[in-house]
Simulated assay, not measured.
Amino acid sequence: MNDPADARFFHALKQICSQSDDVDQSCREAIDRAVETGHPRDLLSARQSMDTLDAALKDRLLRQAHLIMATDISAIWDALPMAADPSKQRPN
């Protein structure tokens, strides 16, 4: 995966889906494959698999995945301009 946000999103989604019995096996496998390979074809397949879920379930899963991403301090730190400077140490 080229975009770190995509990687974090699918990792969060995988974590959430693994905790829900409401997500069917084919959807879980598509998300697992997207996380494993990062290939655009697999990312698209995972997104399309999510689109087949019940709308309320999909919304709940996406809300939970976005909450994980929004509270990921390491991701926030990595997005800061000073994070690119190897001489800087993370404060956390």
Rank of each mutant, 00 (worst) to 15 (best):
N2W: 08
N2I: 09
N2T: 13
D3E: 10
D3T: 11
P4L: 06
P4R: 07
A7K: 14
A7P: 01
A7F: 06
F9C: 02
F9D: 00
F10H: 03
H11G: 05
H11Q: 15
H11R: 15
H11N: 15
A12Q: 02
L13D: 00
K14I: 03
Q15M: 09
I16G: 01
C17G: 06
C17Y: 00
Q19W: 04
V23E: 01
V23D: 00
S26K: 15
S26H: 09
C27T: 15
C27M: 03
R28E: 04
E29Y: 04
A30D: 05
R33M: 05
V35H: 00
G38H: 09
H39Q: 11
H39Y: 09
P40C: 13
P40F: 14
P40W: 15
R41K: 10
R41M: 06
R41D: 09
L43I: 10
L44A: 08
L44Y: 13
A46M: 03
R47C: 10
Q48V: 10
Q48P: 01
Q48Y: 11
Q48W: 11
M50D: 05
M50W: 01
T52G: 03
T52C: 04
T52S: 07
A55I: 14
A56K: 14
K58Q: 15
D59F: 03
R60K: 12
L62R: 08
R63E: 04
A65R: 00
A65P: 00
L67Q: 13
I68R: 09
A70P: 02
T71Q: 03
D72G: 03
I73H: 04
S74R: 15
A75T: 04
I76K: 03
D78Y: 04
A79R: 09
L80M: 14
L80W: 04
P81N: 06
M82K: 04
M82C: 11
M82Y: 07
A83H: 12
A84Y: 09
A84F: 06
A84S: 12
D85M: 07
D85A: 04
D85C: 05
D85S: 04
P86K: 13
Q89W: 06
Q89V: 13
R90L: 13
R90P: 07
P91D: 12
P91K: 05
N92W: 14
